[in-house]
């Protein structure tokens, strides 16, 4: 057995000094030996990182980084296998969490579905269409089909985009990213989450409770 004292001593602190703060931690990578993968940020550059040293992790980081590009429209930093940026210079951390989770947990060839998505609270089929307005790229929620509550649903979905996309509302059915730039893939990634806030909140709460030790999770009292 390696020395307990010196096997890794201080390595985690050295690494964090270099890669910055953690935006999202995915505890279990189902596509590569159940390693833990984090997305870290330093100076507006996002870095895909794992503390695992299993053979093949560098290639796995490259695959995940490439998925951030394919699914989220990020740009790979030249000459690296693990770094990405958004050209706008911002990182849009809230939607980046959803993007990172998908990049790790879905198969490496996973792509965002094309076309409209079904609204979960009405018969409407939803899409978002971007256009430039007053120097900002604005995404308008577009509905196909008929529903008595269409206006309310568009308002709610726009609220969802603001909530999970860190977007700013630009009317009842439109929103733009805070940078004002065009991020089509990110907007399409967020849309399925935006259509049902309560369900997404339940999912996030369930994710958060996994690995927590409380009287509730131990079964010693009703979960809170």
């Amino acid at each position: 057995m390696a020395s307990l004292k010196t096997a890794t001593r201080g390595r985690a602190a050295e690494v964090l000094e270099r890669i910055g703060h953690c935006v999202e931690l995915v505890p279990l990578d189902p596509n590569f030996q159940e390693i833990t993968v984090g997305l870290y940020v330093r100076d507006s550059v996002a870095i895909v990182w794992t503390f695992s040293r299993k053979p093949g992790v560098e290639e796995r980081m490259r695959v995940i980084r490439d998925q951030l590009v394919a699914l989220g429209g990020m740009t790979a930093v030249a000459g690296t296998h693990d770094k990405v940026v958004y050209e706008c210079g911002q990182l849009h951390e809230r939607p980046l969490k959803f993007l990172m989770k998908r990049a790790v947990e879905k198969p490496p060839d996973h792509r965002l579905p094309e076309g409209r998505v079904k609204d979960l609270r009405s018969p409407l089929m939803l899409d978002i269409k971007g256009l430039e307005e007053d120097g900002r790229w604005v995404y308008r929620v577009d509905a196909e089909g008929e529903a008595p509550n269409e206006a309310a649903r568009l308002r709610a979905v726009t609220g969802g985009l603001a909530r999970y996309g860190d977007m700013e509302k630009a009317g009842d059915d439109a929103a733009s990213f805070s940078c004002g730039h065009r991020h089509d893939q990110l907007a399409h990634l967020v849309l399925p989450f935006a259509r049902n806030v309560s369900q997404v909140e339940d999912m996030l709460a369930a994710d958060a409770m996994r690995g927590q030790m409380t009287t509730g999770t131990l079964g010693f009292s009703p979960p809170t």
Binding site: R11, A12, L28, E34, F51, S52, K54
Partner: peptide, 15 residues
């Protein structure tokens, strides 16, 4: 009680 985390498990390959 405990301070072990998934990152530390990876660091020393002790999941």
């Amino acid at each position: 009680t405990n301070v072990a985390t998934v990152d530390l498990m990876d660091l020393v390959d002790a999941p």
